[in-house]
């Protein structure tokens, strides 16, 4: 790891000022992703601004009946928070499906939002990667791409966003609040992450010195919800496919649905098309399948990840089926 200047920020103002003053600086919170990438020489910042002690660790109820979550709240604390467990169980499930208990005790909400891909070629400096070094190429196309994306990819990058938490946040219509020396702004989660296009190294719409300070969740829906993660081990593995879903069924008809996918795209993937097809449709396996097909129709596959289309389809259908059953029992 390259040595660097270390700034411990006691408050947000100091943190964003330090970042503004040192181009290329990185904010360090839990360290679970950044320290790893620095050790792999993928990230080589000259300045690290330690934000891990900023007082952004609370959960507050908002006037509109939602929650405002401090960006430095640990993933485990958020998962175990009584208001999250009771009102947004899908978020608790998504958080607990990620990483290991130790990592969840370190990783923060803000850091989780900014997790970088686990594409093995991104991690290996000896191979070309447009995301790591723009213009060098993509070794995943024509290489190992079983874990790679099928939606939202480009010729330059097929990497997935690895977060579980973000998939639930996408389904929940979360809004991210950020701050820099110029002030604060709010970004809907859907607009936080970019698709790769020709610039896969630009992963979010944040300015380099902008700091995520909190995440706001709108008031919860009453519908049954679930986070379902499919992976290569029973635990402690990244998603091949994951589904965050909430389904409200009235008289056998889908009254409302929220659906987001993980493991299939360069960003947490809100399944807008599937939601459109489903809303107002009968809550049947046939509709679920039609919705999944509609969402997955634009999928582009590589040699190794063709199975993800079928796996995503089946996981969507199974999750919605379970939720419909749960709803009818309630």
């Amino acid at each position: 790891m390259k040595d660097f200047a270390y700034v411990a920020a006691p408050d947000v103002a100091t943190a964003v000022r330090a970042a503004a003053d040192a181009p290329g600086a990185r904010f360090l919170a839990g360290g679970t992703n950044l320290v790893d990438l620095m050790r792999q020489h993928v990230e080589r910042p000259d300045t690290v601004v330690d934000i891990s002690r900023l007082p952004l660790t609370s959960v507050e109820e908002t006037k509109s009946g939602g929650l405002r979550i401090g960006a430095l709240m640990r993933n485990s604390d958020l998962a175990a928070h009584p208001l999250v467990r009771t009102r947004y169980p899908m978020l608790t499930q998504a958080l607990l499906a990620g990483a290991s208990a130790q990592l969840r005790n370190m990783a923060t909400v803000g850091g989780n939002l900014l997790q970088r891909t686990r594409c093995p070629y991104f991690y290996d400096r000896a191979t070309p990667c447009h995301k790591r070094e723009p213009g060098t190429g993509c070794a995943a196309v024509g290489g190992f791409n079983r874990s790679h994306a099928i939606l939202g990819t480009s010729a330059s990058c097929v990497a997935t966003h690895p977060s579980d938490m973000c998939v639930a946040l996408a389904a929940l219509d979360a809004v991210v609040e950020v701050e820099d020396v110029r002030g604060t702004r709010r970004i809907p989660l859907a607009d936080l992450h970019r698709l790769p296009g020709d610039t896969p190294h630009l992963e979010t719409t944040l300015a380099p010195d902008e700091l995520i300070t909190s995440v706001e969740l709108p008031a919860p829906a009453a519908a049954p919800s679930r986070y379902r993660k499919v992976r290569d081990r029973a635990s402690f593995a990244f998603a091949l496919v994951s589904v965050a879903a909430a389904l409200e069924v009235t008289d056998g008809t889908v009254a409302a649905v929220r659906l987001a996918l993980g493991g299939v795209a360069p960003k947490p993937w809100r399944a807008v098309e599937a939601e459109r097809v489903l809303t107002g449709a009968p809550a049947t396996e046939e509709s679920f399948r039609a919705a999944a097909d509609a969402e997955l129709a634009p999928a582009v596959t590589l040699d190794g990840n063709e199975f993800k289309v079928e796996l995503a389809r089946r996981t969507i259908v199974a999750t919605l089926r379970d939720l419909a059953r749960e709803g009818s029992r309630a």
């Binding site: 686990r118 093995p120 070629y121 290996d124 191979t127 190992f144 290569d232 081990r233 402690f236 990244f238």
Partner: peptide
Amino acid sequence: MNPNLSGYHVPV
């Protein structure tokens, strides 16, 4: 390409 314990899946 998976010279690590997150990409090489030993049983947990």
